[in-house]
Simulated assay, not measured.
Amino acid sequence: MTTVSPDTGVGPLLRGWRELRRISQLDLALRADSSARHISFVETGRSRPSEEMILRLADHLDIPVRERNALLVVAGYAPRYPHTPLDDPAMASVREGLVRLLAGYEPYPALVVDGTYDVVAANRGIALLMEGISEELLVPPLNAMRITLHPAGLAPRILNLPEWRADLLAQMERQIALARSPELRTLYEEVAAYPVESRGAGDGLGTGADAGSEGRDRERTPSFALPLVIEHEGRVLSFIASIATFNTPMDVTVAELAIETFLPADRETGAYLRERLA
């Protein structure tokens, strides 16, 4: 057996991921077709795992592909997954597919973000919602979390900001636990520190009786998921968000891309978008 240093070897890293996932050595061994004794030897550095074993354990521990590369390097193997920039010619089909997907979703808003929520691509529906945002937030790279939660961004126009903000921060916390990304942690600490202004009962619903009545009617509309309720030019728009990722990605860049789409939660929102983007 080849001994790996217990301080810097792959064993402690695998143990950390296993403990993070709250899986016992026995459970992991059963899933990976191994033995608890062998898992223990790997974690303590008494046994050097094969490349195949590292990838098998990483799969059962749901370790992101970026971190799988790190495990392989620490263990003395070459990285398995490439990290190809999105503007590389080899990514042409991915870029073109994303652009077609976003365009096909119009007039409804949709965008693609990377692992730290930088906007990779967006359609005209997103551009419509971003009208009036402070120029400082529109300097590339645009960051979806900053644009959404910054006081100079969308936050003042989000009518259910406390609920939507809490949901976004919880989403980021889950991702930090999954990926253990220092960059994502820094972003989380930044956006979580943004001040949240209190909103009066009638604030943000536009002016006039029609806007107020519209807001009250929508409050009575049952929703199957937390909606994003946002004001745009005196109109109240309501969306249900969904997030999609690539299935079994084999590249770090592709693995960290997420496609977020916003489905109108009511007929009025859909009609407004179709009219504006006609």
Rank of each mutant, 00 (worst) to 15 (best):
V139S: 03
V139I: 13
V139M: 08
P140S: 02
P141E: 11
N143G: 00
N143H: 00
A144E: 10
A144F: 15
M145G: 02
I147M: 15
I147F: 12
I147Y: 09
T148L: 06
T148G: 00
T148E: 04
L149H: 07
L149N: 03
P151C: 09
P151A: 04
A152N: 15
G153W: 07
L154F: 01
A155I: 05
A155V: 07
P156G: 13
P156A: 14
P156H: 15
R157K: 08
I158Y: 05
I158L: 05
N160D: 03
N160P: 00
N160H: 06
L161R: 00
L161D: 00
E163V: 01
E163P: 04
R165E: 08
R165S: 08
A166L: 06
D167K: 14
L168R: 08
L168T: 04
A170N: 04
Q171P: 00
M172R: 03
M172P: 02
E173K: 11
E173M: 09
E173L: 13
R174W: 05
R174E: 14
Q175F: 05
Q175L: 14
Q175R: 15
A177S: 07
L178R: 15
L178V: 12
L178M: 10
A179E: 13
A179P: 01
A179T: 13
R180L: 12
S181T: 05
S181F: 14
E183M: 11
E183N: 12
L184M: 03
L184F: 03
R185K: 14
L187P: 01
Y188M: 04
E190S: 04
A192P: 01
A193M: 09
A193P: 07
A193G: 07
Y194T: 07
P195Y: 00
E197L: 12
S198N: 05
S198A: 12
G200E: 02
A201Q: 03
G202Y: 01
G202H: 03
G202D: 04
D203K: 02
G204R: 10
G204I: 11
G206R: 05
T207H: 14
T207M: 06
A209R: 06
A209E: 09
A211L: 08
A211Q: 11
A211Y: 08
G212Q: 12
G212D: 10
E214G: 07
E214M: 15
G215Y: 12
R216Q: 09
D217G: 01
E219R: 07
R220P: 01
R220T: 05
R220L: 09
T221H: 12
T221I: 07
P222C: 06
P222I: 13
S223E: 11
F224Q: 15
P227F: 13
L228P: 00
L228S: 00
V229Q: 11
I230D: 01
E231Q: 14
G234I: 12
R235Y: 03
I240P: 00
I240A: 08
I243F: 13
A244P: 01
T245R: 14
T245E: 11
T245P: 00
N247I: 13
P249S: 04
P249I: 06
D251I: 10
V252K: 06
V252S: 02
T253A: 03
T253S: 04
T253D: 05
V254Y: 05
V254M: 02
A255Q: 12
A255S: 14
A255T: 06
L257M: 01
A258Y: 05
A258G: 09
